[in-house]
Simulated scan of single mutants.
Amino acid sequence: MDTATTGLTFRDAEDNDVDLLVALIESAYRGDASRAGWTTEADILEGQRIDSEGVLAVIRSSDSRLLTVERDDTVVACCQLEHRGDHAYFGMFAVSPALQGGGLGKVIIAEAERQARETWGVTEMHMTVISVREDLIAWYERRGYRRTGRTSPFPYGDERFGVPQRDDLCFELLVKPLA
């Protein structure tokens, strides 16, 4: 394992992590800072990706966890896990742009899947990805996720999720069986 993935600790986010996590998520997806990594949505969405209330809601939900990843006492990534009956939902995945491309994401998603299986006994992980994000979908496919063809609408007009720069956005459901 390379140095980008060593020395990681995983913990559940706490209320006092909110501002740091909002900044991390924003840096991974929006604005010029996001262009340092490959997960940027800056060309398809402007504005915010998440707000403090959204992060706090996940932290405080009895069916969710916001898994926070630290290295050397610095938060470097996070992801949401939500228990939904026989499956878990994976979302709010963000890796610091400066650390993207070094294998950290693979380690985090594998740990999230392990924790969802062990904590809730779920048999599948579900996620939604903006359907035009072909590189990101391909990355998830290499991790064992499969496109379902099932889509849900993008929340046009709700600026809490950003300001779309195109009119063809929707979310596609990806699913992975958990052994």
Rank of each mutant, 00 (worst) to 15 (best):
I50D: 02
A4I: 01
F10A: 00
H83C: 13
A98C: 03
L104F: 01
A13Q: 08
D32N: 12
S61E: 13
V75G: 05
A179G: 15
Y29A: 10
S34E: 03
R60P: 12
L174N: 08
D17Q: 13
S96H: 15
G31C: 11
G85I: 11
T128V: 09
L45Y: 05
Q165L: 15
S64T: 12
W139E: 05
V175I: 15
I25E: 09
R133K: 14
R11Y: 03
S27P: 07
R84F: 09
R147F: 10
M125H: 02
T119P: 00
A112G: 06
A110R: 09
D168V: 06
R142V: 00
R133L: 14
V175M: 10
A4V: 04
K106G: 13
R49Y: 02
L178Y: 08
Y145V: 10
E141I: 03
Q165P: 01
R65F: 09
R133C: 09
H87F: 15
T151N: 14
I108A: 02
L66V: 07
T5G: 02
N16Y: 11
R114H: 13
A77C: 02
P97H: 11
D12K: 14
W120C: 04
S131K: 05
R142H: 14
M125A: 15
L66F: 11
G157Y: 02
S64Q: 15
E172R: 07
G54W: 10
A110V: 01
S131C: 02
D12Q: 14
T148E: 11
G54H: 11
C79A: 14
L174R: 07
R142Y: 00
E26S: 14
T123Y: 00
K106T: 08
V163Y: 04
I130W: 06
L173G: 02
D17R: 11
A23Q: 14
D12H: 13
S131I: 01
S52P: 09
D2N: 15
R30S: 09
L104P: 01
T6A: 07
A33N: 06
A28C: 12
M127N: 06
A23H: 12
G85E: 05
P164F: 08
I137M: 08
G31L: 10
R11V: 01
E26H: 13
I59Y: 09
Q100R: 07
R114S: 13
R30F: 02
D86K: 11
S152C: 05
L45G: 06
D73H: 05
L178A: 09
W139C: 02
G37A: 09
S34D: 03
A77Q: 01
Q48S: 12
L99M: 15
A23C: 07
L81G: 07
R117V: 08
G105Q: 10
G149A: 07
E172Q: 12
V75W: 03
D19H: 14
G7H: 00
R84D: 14
A4N: 05
E141W: 04
A98D: 13
T40F: 03
